[in-house]
Every structure is written in structure tokens, then in C-alpha cells.
Design a protein around this nucleic acid. Structure first.
Lengths: 202, 202
DNA sequence: GTCTATAAAATGATAGAC
DNA sequence: GTCTATCATTTTATAGAC
């Protein structure tokens, strides 16, 4: 499915989330109307308001779900990997890539439609994003300090590595030949090379 | 300015383009109304229709402008660089990064709002994008064939390198400490490393 | 080219019956 | 929880005067 299991609401509320996710990903928040979402679910548009007080709340829940999934996977990756900076970086990149291969629509909406909700409602998601960003930067900093990495600028390297994984949501899908694990393996290698890790050859 | 000089229309038509670019970048095509654009320009909304037959045509012109600028710079970069694959790759990445640092709003709109125009109107821009993509892939292929590059998969390497530059439009701006040339230099190094070029150290 | 005025449709949201 | 019906606004776009 398009949304993580377990954390996604059941029943009509869950079906609304799935429908809104599909439409927001394709047309954007303002490009998909309340009536479009209701039609996709197969209910009347008025029924939506028995589940969400406003259209914006549907988007806000999707954005929150997406960022929570990213944060959780990045946290677990960092915790499960050993202390070696290269292992940390590899685990974090793999986790980031796999979130984006597993939930590309959710990642697109979470990253792209943040401007459509109020700053109050965006703040919790931004905090989760910042936490994930810090995990990556910490691994890079530690690697540079230990001499395991060699980068011209840690900040730019962090941005660059983060950009790689983020963008996966834009092109990964059934129309391309790579499996999720092929992409993850390749991108881990790219990230280690980008960080100047002496080990990997292609 | 936010749009390339020379190719951008003069007079009211140009001011409409600038206003629409700003608003589409911030709120998306459907999130910015005809009246919003007119207010930004300082004219009545009806006056817009003396310059464009529909809202969609404004976006289509922005998308076309953005892709033409990318294609032109990538072409020139490939032509001006020597035949060496590493030089080619370096020149192409530099060109791609600098397009995105120089016109971040245009790049955001051109890449992000493509879904909001009809396939007919999107096709020319997609052709330009494909041309730029082929320049990158050709450099990678030639480098691999000559042994100058070493990648696990040329397609994934091309996607990854392209992703790096594309994403620059999302974060580059006055609120961050890097100059356009610092970013370009760093990203050229990242791309060469990612491609497995034996030369660069950080 | 620019304006005022307005048409025709779509939008987010609510009221109230079942 | 779901529906029918509807409200109040906003939307894209046009008509016609200047």
C-alpha cells in the first residue's frame, strides 16, 4: 500500500487518507478538491467532514505520517548500525532510500506540500525532519574527525547526500528496472564515495 | 532577476511572468489565482487576458523558459569542455548547478508544476530535458568505456548526479552561506567521486 | 491595453434528515 | 456515519466602455 501499516487509521478515515494521498501527489493540495477526494473514496463530499474538520487536516496528517516514518527508520538505522562512521552513514542512507522507495507518494506529498498547511501544523514535521538531518550530519562529522571521511565542506556534503535519497521519490516506481535494494545498495556506495570514504570501488 | 535576461518578454508581459513565477514557486499553480498574480503586477485581473489567453499559458511559458535555459547552458558546457569524459562531466555538473543557483524559482516551477499543463504543452520542455539528460549520460558512458569512471550502474549514477543539481533549487538562496561558485565547485567534486573518477580528493 | 462589471462554474464548508 | 441540499466565496474567463 501507499501508506505505512499499523500507524494508518482504519475504516473510512484510512480510505480518505489513501485517496487524498494519491490525488495530492498527482495534482497538489490545491489541485485536488474535496469533491475529487470524496469521489475517489466513493462517498459524498459532506461525509469527509465527519472524519476531518477541514481539508487542510487531511494533508497535515499525511505530512506527519510521512515524517514520522522517515524519523523512525533513520533512528533505528543509526541505533542498529555499529559506531563506525562509515557503517552509520551506510545505514542512514539505506534507510532514507528505502523510505522513499517504499512510500514515494507519501514522501512527495510530505516534502512538496508543506507550504499548504499552517506553520503551526508544519512545525512538528519539521522537527522530525531536523532530527533525521542531524543523524546524517553527526555521522559525517564523526567520520571527518576520525579521518574516515574527507569532504571539502561537511554542510554541503550533508545536503548533497540528503538530496540523493530525497529525489528517489520522484522517479522510483513500477516503470523503471531497479529494485528497492538495488537502489539502496547503489546509493550507499554513492554516498560513501561522495563522503570520501577510502573503501568503496564500484 | 528571477528570469534569464534577453529571452524574457519586456513590458507588462514580462512583469506578469515575474509575478507568476514568484507566486507559482511559493504557492503552486493552483494555489495562486489570476487575481493574486494581477495584484502582484499591479493591474486588473482582466488585463492579464490581453497578454495571455489563459492562466495555463503563463505557466507553460515559464516552464519552457526554464528548460531552454538549462538545455542551452548544458549544451554550451559540453561544447566548450574538452573531449575528456571527466572534463565533460565536470562542465555539465557545473552548468546544471549554476542554472539552479541563478534561477532557483524558475527551476522549481519548471520541475514541479509540469503536471499542471497539458501534455501537449509539456512535450517541448520534456524534449529539452531529455536532451540535457543525454549529455550527462553520454559523458558517463564514454568515461566508463575509457576506464576513467567506475560505476556499478550507469543509469543509477546518471540519476544520482542529476538529482544532486536539481535539488539545489530547493535550498540555495540568500539564507545560506555558500556562493554559487562554492556550490558548483563542491558538486563537481561530488559528481566525479560518485562516478568513481580516480582523481579527486576533498 | 487597461479598466468596470459580470457571467458561469467550482470551491470549502455547513444544516439537517435518516 | 452518511446522505441531500445549500450557502457563501472564490475561481477562470468574457463583454464592452474608454
Amino acid at each position: 500500500m501507499d501508506l505505512p501499516e499499523g500507524v494508518t487509521p482504519a475504516g473510512t478515515r484510512g480510505r480518505i487518507l489513501h485517496a487524498a494521498l494519491k490525488l495530492f501527489a498527482e495534482y497538489g493540495f490545491f489541485g485536488a478538491s474535496i469533491r475529487d477526494i470524496a469521489r475517489e473514496v466513493g462517498i459524498n463530499s459532506a461525509t469527509l467532514y465527519a472524519h476531518y474538520p477541514a481539508k487542510e487536516h487531511i494533508l497535515a496528517e499525511l505530512i506527519q505520517l510521512g515524517h514520522e516514518e522517515l524519523r523512525q527508520r533513520m533512528r533505528e538505522a543509526a541505533a542498529d548500525a555499529g559506531p563506525d562512521p562509515a557503517d552509520q552513514l551506510a545505514a542512514l542512507v539505506r534507510a532514507q532510500v528505502l523510505v522513499h522507495t517504499d512510500y514515494p507518494l507519501l514522501a512527495l506529498v510530505a516534502n512538496h506540500e508543506l507550504h499548504a498547511i499552517s506553520p503551526d501544523r508544519a512545525a512538528p514535521a519539521l522537527a522530525l525532519r531536523e532530527e533525521a538531518r542531524q543523524l546524517l550530519l553527526t555521522a559525517l562529522d564523526r567520520g571527518v574527525a576520525q579521518g574516515a571521511f574527507d569532504v571539502p565542506d561537511v554542510g554541503l556534503a550533508g545536503i548533497a547526500i540528503g538530496s540523493l535519497g530525497l529525489r528517489v521519490a520522484n522517479w522510483f516506481g513500477p516503470d523503471q528496472p531497479y529494485t528497492r535494494d538495488q537502489v539502496a545498495d547503489a546509493y550507499v556506495g554513492f554516498a560513501l564515495r561522495l563522503a570520501g570514504s577510502p573503501l568503496p570501488r564500484g
